[in-house]
Amino acid sequence: MAEDTDKELVRRVQKGDQAAFDLLFVRYQSKIVNLISRYVSDQEETLDVAQEAFIKAYRALPRFRGESQFYTWLYRIAINTAKNHLVARSRRPPGVDVDVDEIEYRDDATALRDSETPEAALARDQVQATIHQALNDLPEDLKSALTLREFDGLSYEQIADIMECPVGTVRSRIFRAREFVDQRMQRMADPGADEH
């Protein structure tokens, strides 16, 4: 379960493993930035608040007892940090809190995209195009496994039921699909680089 991954990462951070916090950060940075952007519209301010929220979480993690799920706890820190930021800037925070359970299913990157520079927008479009092209170029079985996982959020077991294959096959297909996409991305970033 994904919670087990979080639990183990949290346990390691609590024992002093900074690399584990880096992995947790990468896992949740998009969600946290998007969440904060609902309170703070300026991109630079959003990043400052997100940075502050992660640092608060890093400092508070030794006291995290695991009574709630890590991401719920982290989202609460982010929301409170954003609200405090608005109060400190004498702006009123929104009256209604964002529902933590809905965060996974909402896309709030629009406000951030509005403040992108043309160069950043171009780079984003290029990366997006590469990934979507790679997805289209995947063999059908790999593509189905990856999209069922990433778009639909299904477990390996559920995907195995749908694709009528063993769970191990699903795992292998998803892995190979990711490798394929990753190789395309690396080739885009450095056209001269060797593949794995």
Binding site: S30, V33, A50, D107, T147, F151
Partner: peptide
């Protein structure tokens, strides 16, 4: 793939 990519460009990490 989930439409949340924007933050990766922003050097927060």
């Amino acid at each position: 793939l989930r439409g949340d990519e924007i933050v990766h460009q922003l050097d927060l990490r």
